[in-house]
């Protein structure tokens, strides 16, 4: 009981302070919740499986300060209840979460946990309230890559670019690069539509189509067939232009400088030119 009151109190203070002082209040809020975490864990842990216990511990330590003790959300971060394990797995495994500073833009990085720990967190959040998608297997057995290419061209290339290099969208938004993702992550992204990404599944794409796209992204976007030499990062004509001008024309100019002679003014002409320039 004391835990619940403390928690509510702390949240109240946090919201109040956050509303009044913005980010400065965050430090205060997190120290207050710290006591609540301890009480919370001792109360419920005996009823959970070891997997969920691990998830709960990690969630309380790393996520609850912003997302709330029961993932109910706060002024700082959205509610995670009912989001499903796939969403949590994607955000944590892609390195977006947890954030060091809650106002930071999430940036892709390495997963800060082991695979077991990440899955445990995802399962724990999913156990609080049902909903969303379970972590997909990411199997691409029997997928039609060609179909995937066509669907990718139609649905994904508009933001992620046809080579999957990613690009800046209007405002501060950006479509991230699709290189270096696991099949599970790609499936999760299509299913759960993180951030500003539009929803494609279920609806626009069937489960088979999702698998086709995942297969194309995991195989041919991640490991493009770079026949013909260095791939220039899938940045197309901008990179090609720089190579063409600086390496191509540049090398030819250096050769010209090597083969050709340099000019030399004679005294008489120089003085004449200097005189002209004075006019």
């Amino acid at each position: 009981m004391r835990g619940v009151i403390l928690k509510k109190l702390s949240l109240f203070i946090a919201s109040l302070l956050a509303g009044t002082f913005g980010i400065a209040a965050f430090a205060g809020a997190s120290t207050t919740t710290h006591h609540a975490v301890a009480a919370h864990v001792t109360k419920h842990s005996s009823t959970l499986s070891p997997q969920l216990q691990l998830g709960q511990t990690l969630f309380d330590e790393n996520c609850s300060s912003c997302h709330g003790i029961d993932a109910q959300g706060s002024m700082l971060a959205p509610k995670l209840q009912g989001r499903g394990a796939a969403t949590i797995d994607l955000w944590v495994s892609s390195g977006w979460m947890p954030l060091a500073v809650p106002t930071d833009q999430p940036r892709r990085g390495v997963d800060k946990f082991t695979r077991v720990q990440t899955t445990a967190i995802a399962d724990y959040v999913a156990s609080i309230k049902a909903g969303g998608f379970a972590i997909p297997s990411g199997s691409i057995a029997g997928a039609n890559v060609s179909q995937g290419q066509e669907l990718f061209s139609e649905n994904c290339a508009g933001c992620h670019t046809i080579t999957g290099a990613g690009d800046a969208l209007s405002g501060d938004l950006n479509a991230p690069s699709l290189h270096g993702l696991t099949t599970t992550q790609i499936t999760e992204a299509i299913e759960t539509a993180p951030g500003n990404m539009p929803h494609f599944y279920p609806g626009a794409l069937t489960a088979t189509q999702v698998k086709d796209v995942v297969a194309y992204v995991a195989n041919d976007i991640a490991h493009p067939n770079n026949s013909g030499g260095i791939g220039l990062g899938g940045n197309g004509p901008v990179a090609e232009g720089f190579v063409g001008l600086f390496l191509g024309v540049g090398a030819c100019l250096l050769f010209a400088l090597w083969v050709g002679d340099r000019s030399e003014d004679d005294e008489e002409h120089e003085t004449e030119a200097v005189k002209e320039a004075h006019v």
Binding site: I162, T163, G229, E240, G248
Partner: peptide, 14 residues
């Protein structure tokens, strides 16, 4: 350049 640097990989564009 033609031998070692890729240009316009149209198969990747579809």
């Amino acid at each position: 350049l033609g031998a070692f640097v890729q240009i316009n990989p149209i198969w990747l564009y579809g």
